[in-house]
Design a protein around this nucleic acid. Structure first.
Lengths: 156, 156
DNA sequence: AACCATAGACAACCAGGTTGTCCATGTCCA
DNA sequence: TGGACATGGACAACCTGGTTGTCTATGGTT
């Protein structure tokens, strides 16, 4: 029985952390090493149309320089391709590669499996209730929005 | 209605982040600038008896060097005092100062107020249920343990 | 043609971590 | 008592994921 607000915060962090750590381990076992939430965020934004470093920065609430650094690692790992934009010589067009989509899909699956295992433990209804209370409290957009800045940090 | 495991993770992160950001802002308004969870953790460990950098490192699952860096900022801000240990010339004894206890107490109060405001929004019973489900899922020790490494990162 | 906005590269810096090395001190044991 | 080992802390170099500032090349507008 926690009466303490600080404990509540730690429980929430603990939940996030538990899921992410498990996902990271599982992803590593499937051959995608050192894949972090920040990479996932960036790739999703790119897949969703952020096709340049500046645009990625804007969409993820991060400086274009920070975005460029993340892109550099994604390119190096083969998850994202960067090629000159034929229509604008300033830009380098970004594209998620097939390998990149693989890791996105697997990450998604893993998180869904983790959620399912939680549902088995406390019951589907309870989990759904937990989610909807939380959604009420933090708002729907906490889920999209500028998680990255934070996500970057809530890792290990 | 989220079916997605990824959304669940983001909701949890969003919750943590919402609380911490609000607390940070409020603490800053009360004159404690740039006080981060990592500082809170370290000070609590010191107050609980981690009276040297090495010991603090052990208790917070961090290298002694990292602990020393954190201590340096706490000392610089006057939250922690560091003085030679009379009984062992290798050690520097750490102590939370009265100012340090102030900020701890206020942080605690702020988090409790935030929790209360959440309780007003979704109902005490609902919030308590949310906490106990979460506790079931992540375990009690997620609340204590080695949050620091993570906390360090789940900031802004 | 002149001017301004934009994309991206590069460099310096910050926080909070890591590892490795080193020295001074303390402890233990033959 | 002396030598071996363990411990505390300082220092330096490095990592990641951010920041700001500056610079160049290109594009768009008037």
């Amino acid at each position: 029985m926690s009466r303490s607000g600080a404990d509540l915060a730690l429980l929430l962090l603990g939940g996030y952390r538990t899921l992410v750590e498990a996902a990271q381990v599982e992803l590593a076992e499937r051959g995608y090493d050192d894949f972090r939430p920040v990479h996932d965020f960036a790739m999703r934004a790119i897949a969703a149309g952020a096709d340049s470093a500046s645009e990625l920065g804007r969409r993820t609430s991060v400086s274009k320089q920070a975005a460029a650094k993340t892109i550099a690692v994604l390119v190096e790992r083969g998850y994202v391709a960067r090629e000159p934009d034929p229509g604008d010589a300033r830009r380098k067009r970004l594209q998620v590669t097939p390998l990149g989509f693989d890791v996105l899909r697997q990450g998604e699956t893993i998180f869904d499996e983790l959620r399912a295992s939680w549902a088995r433990r406390i019951g589907s209804a309870e989990l759904a209730a937990l989610e909807s209370r939380l959604r009420e409290l933090v708002g729907d957009d906490a889920v999209r929005a500028d998680a990255p800045g934070w996500v970057a940090q809530a890792e290990g």
